[in-house]
Design a binder for these strands. Structure first.
Lengths: 254, 254
DNA sequence: GGTACATTTCCGTCGTGCAGAACAAAGCAG
DNA sequence: CTGCTTTGTTCTGCACGACGGAAATGTACC
């Protein structure tokens, strides 16, 4: 990337650098200040200023647990615009606000992306102790309630092909192998909802239902996420009732 | 947009302006120099420099028939990254190069986007008179060979729901109503390919086959586009043979 | 042809974007 | 644990690049 292509006359060098930096995020989930400095051939201080400007306008965001910057909401909105997700988000949001108010917990909208699920919309409850919205986060399907609800909507052969590389282990509770996952997906289809009991993160429980559109095609899932102390099975089941009503209303809008 | 939000210290003003300009493309297909000048509160010459820098880095491109700038390939690539299209393009491209060399015509990869098809990859032949690649173009499904091949892969009820608002008329040859389209889709399913005889553009003929992945799911279509004088049915049929081989090889990669 | 509007090119000016230095925080090895 | 290295962030002097205004060019309409 050190090959500075000749800019046309009157083009703006600082803007070109920022845009080239943005292009790095097409292939990388994380870009550090030093990476940017090296790739663009600028000082670290300049690279940092470019990244913080990109962050201020929402194109990137600083990652909390990893050192560096990842895609931000503005960039994700471009990503969603061609796949119908923008439309889904807009229609789902008012219903999600209602669900969050009804159950007083954080509500998420998830869609399948490769072998993972993307959190494409979220509504946080007002409680001081709550699960954060995690907008834009990408998590393994088999370790999240919303992901498992999506998998349950697929043919088992499809699931096997999708998760062929194996099941990443996130906690001691994460589903460990394909056999256990297939058993659980069978149960999810029977019950009509999926649960997560500390499988993606210790201390986080969730319930989810899948969303289908008016033609019956699977498009994603709706999930309620709660701190573990509020995540007993009976409680999660009551949240499922509210989720199912919202999913049915959303289906009629799609 | 004239409300200039306070930038953090050391942020880069010119970069922020460019990024705010880019955000306009989330809601608008076309942005003119004058629009940009007004929205950003900068001189027209500055707006122009910002746009030409965005264009040079591929984020926008000048529209040929409309005055102004539209989304460019780099922006579209962000859009593709979340929907698996990037992977599809990369795997399809070498095969498309071979097809184009074999038939000495322009080859396109198309995917469904809403009620239209997007040209997500293209390989042009070397002839002076050829159909251009039209990368990033969005055209009605029913008026393109690639679009019709995709529709033929869907249930008829799905097609009806998708095209409920009606069939846009692009030329005198465009399929005029749903009945005619259903008849043609039935034929496409029987024959295994779709043709376009001046339906999207006078003087443009094309042949297309659908692409399915290893699981048999429809993912898009491959098309050969030719000038009308080279677009007789027998000729197009011979292109179909080459396309079908490429589609089968691509299926095994997906 | 003329007029009005939009886009593009050019140029003088000055303030903004640059790099280097300093500082703070994080990471790594013995 | 300590010491060293690496990385991220803040600050500052300076010169050159980003700015706006004017001119030139292009487009559409009457």
């Amino acid at each position: 990337m050190q090959n500075k292509a000749e800019l046309p006359p009157y083009a703006i060098e600082s803007v070109a650098n920022a845009l080239r930096l943005l292009l790095l995020f097409r292939e990388r989930d994380i870009v550090r200040v030093t990476d940017a400095s090296t790739e663009l051939g600028v000082a670290r201080s300049t690279a940092h200023r470019l990244l913080m400007t990109l962050a201020h306008e929402g194109f990137v965001q600083q990652e909390r647990n990893a050192k560096g910057y990842g895609p931000g909401p503005a960039l994700l909105e471009f990503a969603y615009s061609s796949s119908g997700i923008l439309d889904l988000r807009q229609k789902a949001r008012p219903l999600m606000v209602e669900v969050s108010a009804a159950v007083d917990e954080t509500v998420n909208l998830l869609v399948l992306e490769g072998r993972s699920v993307r959190f494409v919309e979220s509504v946080e409850c007002e409680r001081p102790v709550r699960v954060s919205g995690r907008m834009g986060a990408l998590l393994p399907t088999h370790a999240t309630a919303g992901g498992k609800a999506i998998l349950a909507d697929m043919e088992m052969a499809e699931v096997r092909a999708l998760l062929k590389p194996g099941l990443a282990r996130m906690t001691a509770q994460t589903i460990p192998n394909m056999k256990a996952l297939e058993d659980e997906l069978q149960q999810i289809r029977h019950l009509g909802y999926a649960l997560n009991k500390g499988e993606s993160l210790d201390g986080l429980h969730a319930a989810a239902v899948s969303i289908r559109d008016a033609m019956g095609r699977p498009v994603g899932s709706l999930a309620v996420s709660v701190p573990a102390d509020r995540g007993g099975t009976a409680r999660l089941k009551s949240h499922v009732q509210v989720l199912a009503v919202a999913a049915e209303r959303l289906r009629q809008l799609l």
